[in-house]
Amino acid sequence: MPELDFADARLHYRLGGNPDGPALLLLQGQANSQRWWDGVRTDFEDVYRTITFDYRGTGSSTAADADWTTRSFAADAAAVVQAAGFSRAHVYGTSMGGRIAQWLAIDRPELVDRLVLGCTTPGGEHAVERDQQVRRSLLNPDSAERRRALFELMYTDAWTGSPEESTVLGDPTMTAAATRRHLRVSARHDAWDRLPEIAAPTLVLHGDEDLLAPVVNAELLAQRIPDATLHVLPGARHAYFDEFRVAASGLVRDFLAAGS
């Protein structure tokens, strides 16, 4: 796996798919490595050169303790795209990855071709937070119960997979300190005032049964970002991209192809 060295970090990234295709950067959720995309990346690799990387504190990446933010992670993402040999890329970010993608599109507009924001929020005082019952379930001191609660927030009862098979329930290799820092990164995100600056054509995707990031946040993003397109998937929860993979990946592919 290629590496990108900084003075205070070493980031591991992965290239896949069509070596002659346009770049597609995939940005995963909070406290997860690039394995978040294991079940989805192949949906795009016949056409696109996919790029994923382990955030600081996750997977095979290493980094010194620092005040990480979604904006600093966006700078990391830009550096990875350029290290992979691309000057532009489509960007698909989900959950915290969608927050990072917002800053990437704001700070590096020349780098972002088309933008997809999935199951995410604008952050700050304008975002609609999860309710107290959800918060309590994720703070359960029993790790098994906490994981079970997260699984139920990610997937519907119809999902035939198991928590043991899922790659979106957190990176088990992370330290407790890194996990806390990721929580702080995501919680402190606020791009509201800058969202109207996003110039990239934008698709906002969300499940209407998402309790981790209530669907009203998708509506706020679509209203705030100029000419954004909103698509809500009926019956889907936070991991819509996995459980509703055929429909969700099809929507993303159609949106990206419209810019060709």
Rank of each mutant, 00 (worst) to 15 (best):
R194T: 04
A199P: 08
V204E: 00
A89E: 02
L256E: 14
E219K: 11
T160L: 09
E3C: 03
L150E: 15
Y55R: 07
L212C: 01
G161V: 09
A89K: 01
R49S: 14
Y155N: 07
R108W: 01
L4R: 14
D76G: 09
T229K: 11
A89P: 09
H90S: 07
S186F: 03
T175H: 14
D65E: 06
R224V: 07
F6I: 04
A176E: 10
Q102Y: 10
I198V: 08
T167G: 05
Q133E: 13
Q30V: 07
A158Q: 15
E152P: 10
L220W: 00
A66T: 13
A176P: 01
A144M: 08
P109V: 10
P214V: 15
T175G: 09
V116Y: 01
L117S: 03
Q30M: 07
S61M: 09
M1T: 06
M1I: 04
V134M: 11
H90M: 00
V185H: 04
E197A: 14
V216K: 04
L230S: 06
E243C: 05
D38I: 13
R56S: 08
D107I: 12
E219A: 14
P109Q: 06
L251M: 11
A158D: 15
Q82M: 09
T229A: 09
A176C: 03
T69D: 02
D5K: 15
V246H: 13
V134L: 05
R253H: 15
Y92I: 01
V252L: 13
T94G: 04
E197K: 08
R49M: 02
D242P: 00
M1E: 11
A200R: 07
Q30G: 10
G16A: 02
R108G: 10
L24E: 05
V246R: 13
T69G: 03
T120F: 03
G39Q: 06
L221I: 02
G98S: 01
D254V: 12
L230A: 11
S60I: 01
A248F: 03
G161I: 13
R224W: 07
F151S: 13
V252Y: 12
G170K: 04
R237T: 12
F44L: 05
A74E: 06
D142M: 00
V246K: 12
L203W: 13
A178K: 10
P163E: 15
P196R: 09
C119R: 02
A149I: 00
R56C: 06
P22K: 02
H206V: 00
D76W: 02
A78W: 12
V246E: 13
T202G: 02
E164G: 14
L203Y: 11
S143A: 15
T42A: 10
